[in-house]
């Protein structure tokens, strides 16, 4: 029974299986809802892949070191392009094989990227000075 809000129950997935998994979801007709990134604070991030088929959601969780490139699913799901670029802006993540890489300029200008390395990561989520 699909629900509107659920306690997240995500299947763990390995980094090298992400693209193959996306391909199989694509072939089954799933819609990529979005990806969510959370900083865990210990040098790792959790990346969630949310898929939807007829209003029923399936979630995958990839726990990944922050400084290693993540395989991009944008060659499979073109829609992942924006969210991966957004994660690049917010968490300074690297993506392997991103179809259109804005190189951290999707949202941010130099004033920010030169002073704050990753605004959404815990270490740099600081209040502004003045």
């Amino acid at each position: 029974m699909p629900t509107h809000s659920e306690i997240l129950n995500a299947t763990p997935i390995a980094a090298d299986a992400v693209v193959a998994q996306a391909r199989s979801m694509f072939d089954q007709g799933y819609r990529l809802v979005t990806m969510s990134v959370v900083d865990l604070g210990d040098g790792n991030v959790d990346i969630f892949y949310h898929y939807d088929l007829n209003n029923e959601m399936t979630h995958f969780r990839l726990t990944h070191p922050k400084d290693k490139p993540v395989p991009s699913i944008s060659p499979v799901y073109f829609a992942a392009l924006l969210v991966e670029n957004e994660s690049r802006d917010h968490f300074n993540l690297q993506f392997d094989g991103l179809v259109l890489d804005f190189n951290r300029t999707l949202y941010l200008d130099e004033e920010i990227t030169s002073t704050i390395s990753a605004p959404f990561c815990k270490i740099s989520t600081i209040q502004k000075k003045d």
Binding site: H4, I7, L8, H50, H59
Partner: peptide, 8 residues
């Protein structure tokens, strides 16, 4: 506490 996904 915990993780939730919610849609409207």
């Amino acid at each position: 506490t915990g993780e939730v996904v919610c849609r409207v």
